[in-house]
């Protein structure tokens, strides 16, 4: 078999392998992006962008058993970039209320709105740290790996983020 034919067959296998991995992880990906970004349309865009970036970098992944962590890191970076752009070009977010389900578990609407406002005040890195720690329930070490920073940095970001969220809940002014 010529070298080119061998390469073509390997390329086809690679495409199929990637498609299978993404099909398995897409729901989790979309949901994580939605929680970080706060609305479905942004989550769709971010998830698609992350998939495109992951496909282009897939050849560099030597151990596909680490795909989930590897891809989650790409998704975190995409979401972080989107949050940064959103911070530079603030747009009144009218979609947050629409994204909440009808069967809202919050009895105190004020608490929910307070958290909405306080979360918007977090830096992108702080917001993502909170989501990875308290929703994905990653250990501090795993959060550090996903975000490419030391555990100490994760702790300091978490401390600052939780302090802001707590001030938001208690009604104190959230100062960035």
């Amino acid at each position: 078999m010529s070298g080119q034919a061998t390469a073509a067959g390997a390329e086809a296998d690679r495409r199929v392998a990637f498609a299978q991995l993404m099909d398995r992880d897409l729901d989790r990906t979309y949901r994580l992006a939605g929680i970080i970004l706060g609305n479905g349309p942004d989550a769709e865009d971010a998830a698609h962008d992350a998939v495109v970036q992951a496909w282009r970098a897939f050849g560099g992944l030597r151990d596909t058993t680490r795909f989930e962590a590897w891809f989650q890191r790409i998704l975190v970076n995409v979401c972080r970039d989107r949050l940064r752009k959103r911070r530079r070009s603030p747009v009144t977010e009218l979609t947050l209320a629409a994204s909440h389900s009808v069967s809202d578990r919050f009895k105190d609407v004020d608490d929910r709105l307070a958290l909405d406002r306080a979360f918007e005040q977090l830096s992108p890195d702080q917001a993502i740290t909170v989501v990875l720690r308290f929703h994905v329930d990653l250990s501090l070490d795993d959060v550090a790996t996903r975000m490419g920073v030391p555990v100490g940095t994760v702790k300091s970001r978490l401390h600052a983020a939780l302090a802001k969220l707590e001030r938001g809940l208690t009604g104190a002014e959230v100062i960035d």
Binding site: F18, A19, M22, L26, R31, H48, S99, H135
Partner: peptide, 23 residues
């Protein structure tokens, strides 16, 4: 609980179709 309330649910069909096409 508040983070859970932000969960948008499973990926919509149009996203799944677009992602399947990427590779």
């Amino acid at each position: 609980s508040w983070l859970e309330s932000r969960d948008p649910g499973d990926a919509p069909a149009q996203l799944r179709a677009a992602v399947a096409d990427v590779p």
